[in-house]
Amino acid sequence: MADSTSVVKKTARSFPAPSVIPGFAPTFGLTILYLGLIVLFPLSLLVLRASELGLSGLYSVATEPRVAAALRTSFFISFAAAAIDVVFGLVVAWVLTRYEFPGRRFLDAIVDLPFALPTAVAGIALAALYAPNGWLGAPLAEYDVKIAFTRWGILIALVFVGLPFVVRTVQPLLAEIDAELEEASATLGASRAQTVWRVLLPPLLPALLTGFALAFARSVGEYGSVIFIAGNLAYISEIAPLLIIVKLEQFDYAGATGIATIMLAISFAVLLAINLIQAWSQKRFGHV
């Protein structure tokens, strides 16, 4: 009796769609429970804490000049870094998938380094490289170019952090693109440049956008690698995550959670955008 009703219920709701594969309930339940405990509950508490400010309070936190400046710094530099990653990431992905040359496999492996290398290690290494007495900082200082402790330092750290996102999103697609398309284009008289520009790049666009968005989202929140190389000057080279720490150290919990909530909202928006891009791409090109 209980058996049949539960089956009926299941098909009526069709959640999940009927399947002979067992184990949906425990795995789905575990997923939701774990996700809820570890991610959603703490994050919602953050939002709750910030909501004590009210919308107007949140607005005034975001528009407080120093916060606005830090958010702007984080956003613009992350945007620039992601853009650089898209350009060079595409070149790197192209070279790694299409050409055979000595050391290719090594370079291919090393692309994932920013995923695996701890951010703090990256931070002190970059600071050591670009400081006025570092390997690269010293020769640059001769020409009065300063990298470490300026916005350029932040940019370099963020380019480092974001690169694998672009390469790893574009690479599989480049490998999969049908050679026939290129051949057809060439047979129809297109130059190689035209083929690349008109035939190869358009289907890569969604992947590039996704890679851009991922690199951007990661960069906005990045702390460890930036903190050692940024100048941390308010209004100039102070990033938003640092400002959260600064606010905390002034015992301004409302301000800290306010900034955190704004950044959280942005992360979520970016992820949503990625999903939309992928849905659109699925429709337009038949792949993600």
Binding site: A131, P132, N232, A234
Partner: peptide, 18 residues
């Protein structure tokens, strides 16, 4: 040119990083 978060950070910036 830089405001480190702690006194030690500043000393490192000045002495170690030049």
């Amino acid at each position: 040119p830089v405001l480190d978060t702690g006194a030690r950070g500043s000393t490192i910036t000045f002495a170690q990083r030049g």
